[in-house]
Amino acid sequence: MATMSPLRQRMIEDMTVRNLSPSTQQSYIYAIAKFSRHFGYAPDRLSFEQVRAYQLHLIGQKRSWSHINQVACALRFFYGVTLGQTEAFERIIGGQKPDKLPLVLSAEEIERFLDAVTGVRNRVVLATAYAAGLRVSEVVRLKVSSIDSKRMLIHIENGKGGRDRYAMLSPRLLEILRTYWMRARPGLWLFPGQDPSEHVSVRCVQAACRAARRRARLAKPITVHTLRHSFATHLLESGIDIRIIQVLLGHADLGSTARYAQVATNLLARTTSPFDGLSVRVIPPN
């Protein structure tokens, strides 16, 4: 087993004391490692000129602006925090993401998609992602104890930005989760992976998502995040207040409306999920 370098260990410690999420830490470490390999030198031997050259390389490779900006964040952290070069926060800049509209599926397309998902666990995972508007990183890390059937809420632990929040638990989703639990009898994790002590991986769920899209013959490039976009759009179209939707999605950057967005959890629990209006059978009868 390879020994971790002191520099990498220091960066991990810097991220840990700042409570960066495990997924953010992993992506930052991966980005710095690729940056280092690109030039063939340890990252602390590379200057801001190499950083600029690497960013131009990524643009030339036609990488997405989300990826390019994530790399910029990793580089700013490494140089600015771990190496103590505070000018990095000004010198390493990100790009402006194109203002694209989110891809949204119709209710009929959601039904076709869920009908095409194979495997009970995968189908329930993706149904839960749509029914509650969850990020893929949130739905795979749900625990059995996350489901609060008394208050009709789902407790999201350590979500984006390391924040806890509540998502809605619709009556129909609760019925499906209860049936799933009776059949699968999961332990700690609601959706375990091949190793029951670990949760199902993001990669596995995304692969199931791609396979279902092909099986359903849907032309749109569907990801788990597409289900989240669709959840929010369908709620908005049904007349739900935008402030409630912002809270349900766990969005923190609300600008001038931020202080009005923190509505009571009993209001969230009374909001009907668009999933309840679908006729798709997620778990087939015995």
Rank of each mutant, 00 (worst) to 15 (best):
Y30P: 09
A31R: 08
A31Q: 05
A33I: 07
F35W: 01
F35H: 01
F35K: 02
F35R: 01
S36Y: 04
S36V: 07
S36K: 04
R37K: 10
R37A: 10
F39W: 04
G40H: 13
Y41A: 05
P43Y: 11
R45N: 07
S47I: 04
F48T: 03
F48Q: 09
E49N: 02
R52D: 07
A53C: 06
A53F: 03
Y54N: 11
Q55A: 08
Q55M: 13
H57Q: 09
H57L: 04
L58Q: 10
I59C: 02
I59P: 02
G60I: 12
Q61K: 14
K62Y: 03
R63C: 11
R63A: 07
S64Y: 03
W65D: 01
W65S: 01
S66W: 00
H67S: 09
N69E: 11
V71N: 01
A72P: 10
A72F: 13
C73H: 06
C73I: 02
C73Y: 02
C73F: 04
L75N: 05
F77D: 01
F77W: 12
F78P: 10
Y79P: 11
Y79G: 09
Y79I: 06
Y79C: 06
G80Y: 08
G80W: 14
V81E: 15
L83P: 14
G84A: 08
G84R: 09
G84D: 10
G84P: 10
Q85I: 05
T86D: 13
A88M: 07
F89S: 05
I92P: 14
I93K: 15
I93T: 13
G94I: 11
G94Q: 12
G95Q: 15
P98T: 00
P98N: 04
D99P: 00
P102Y: 00
P102F: 00
L103N: 00
L105Q: 04
A107E: 03
E108I: 07
E108C: 07
